[in-house]
Structure formats: structure tokens, C-alpha cells
Amino acid sequence: MVVIGTIENLVKKVITPDIKISFGGAALFLKPMEVVREIIRQEIKDLIIYTLIGDLDIDLLLGVKAIKELHSSYVGLPMIGMARHFRKAMEKEQSVDFYEWTELSMVRAFQAGAMGTPAIMLRSLLGSDLVKLREDFEEVTYRGMKYIQVPAITPDLAIVHAYAADQNGNVFYPKHHALDEFSTLPAQCAKQLFVSVERMITNEEGRELIQQGQSTMFSSIDVDFVVEAPKGAWPSGFPPFYASDMGHIMTYSGMANMPETFDMYLREYVFGKSQEAVQ
């Protein structure tokens, strides 16, 4: 049964310390940013996060020390530079356990989670020191061939941002945007799915979308929680509806430099209402 509610209520109800979460999106596209901001507003801590390419989502959460364990292949602000809180957390504070994957191994582990197989073998990690850091990565021989076996990723919850949801919880996102797999892969391996959408629509509007040739990104049986969050991926991009707000991300990058300016950023764009002015 899909629960439709406000972002305040459902984040409070569902996202608890020590929960394992996979985020949809990658590299400043399709990130569930409004849910990230709500997690910060509610001061929820000790999260375990999986994201293929971490950017502002991860750097914000690390800035408020909300993540205790992080899995990703890359954490930075693509085209702009380093993620400052990520570096600080790693180099100065040692406040987060970071597990670096490669893109392929992480996607295969998402797929393994979706298949219900406990682990998957691949070859691209052979010879990499990433394997030495991990007790759960293992070199194995299968029919005379060497592989690295990695565990499936099985989060408690996936959080993704999509275009629209009808009153039954069917979720829509235009199909021809190949970016959708950045969100469907982390969703399919998780036990539960939390979706923020640009807008709620009626069931009739949902049927019209299907008649226009769209398909559901997730059907109601896949979905557990739905909240409405207009511009909910901002400042990451949500094509074809809005682009990544690189100007804002550059502003962030500057303000993340010092604790005082980062606090100003949080007051302005996370706790404040000025973000509506931006939108």
C-alpha cells in the first residue's frame, strides 16, 4: 500500500538513524535534493548511503555530519571541482567510513541486489587496491578464470526523484531520457522505495500520460512512499524539465569553504525559504 504524505511527515517516519539508503541520480542529475534538505532540517544522523556518483547531495550531508558510512565510485562536483566536506571528512576528521567502488562494480552490485543473488563476480576490479581495502571483496576462481566477487547491495530504502505520481502511487518520468537508469537501478535493489515527485496528478491524468505513449517508471506495487516536492532535484538537473543549476553549485562550492559561510548556506537554502525565490 503506497503511503502518500508530506515530506516532513514521511521523512520523519521512514528515515531513521542507521538506515541503509541508496540515492537515485548521479553526477548532478536527478538527485533527491529536497529529501536531502529535509533530512538535514530534521537533523537525522548516522546514515549509510549508497550513490553511484556523489555530488552536492553527499557533500551537504557530510557537512552536517549526517553520514557514518558512504559507498560511491566518485564524490566531487563534476565540472566544478572537489567536494570540500568530503575531503575534510576524509583528510581531517576521519568522520566517515568511505568505501570506494568502481562504477561497473557498483552497478553490478545494484543489479545483484535486484536479482536476489548475494554476490556477483566481475573482472574489472582485478589488480585494484580497492579490493585489498574490503573484507567483502574476494578474488575467486571460477572454471579456471579469475574474478573479484563483490556483495550485492541491498539497502533498506531507495530515495529517488521523479516527475509525477498519480493517486495510486504510479510514478512517471519521460521514457526517452536514458538517465532514468541512474534512479531505477538503485531503486530495484532496495527493500522499500521513497519517491519525491515534481507534482501529484489524478489517476485520469496518469492514464492520459500512458495513452500519450509514456510508461510508468515505477508502478504502484514498487512504491512505498510518495511526497510532492516541486523542483525537488534542484540544484541538480532534471531533464527535460530543468537543467543543473551550475551557478548555484559554484556558489555552494565557495560557501562550503568555511564553517561560517557553510552555516549561512544552510540557513539560506536548507532551513530558509529563499530557495523558493531561486525557483
Binding site: I53, S72, S73, Y74, V75, G76, M82, A83, F86, R87, M90, E91, E100, T102, E103, L104, S105, R123, S124, L125, L126, G127, S128, L130
Partner: peptide
């Protein structure tokens, strides 16, 4: 701490 290899390690193999 660099951002991470992303797909660089995969491409090599």
C-alpha cells in the same frame, strides 16, 4: 583524498 576513480579502473580492464 581524490574524488575517486569512477569508471577509470573499469576501463583499464
Amino acid at each position: 583524498r581524490f574524488p575517486g576513480g569512477a569508471a577509470a579502473g573499469d576501463i583499464i580492464n
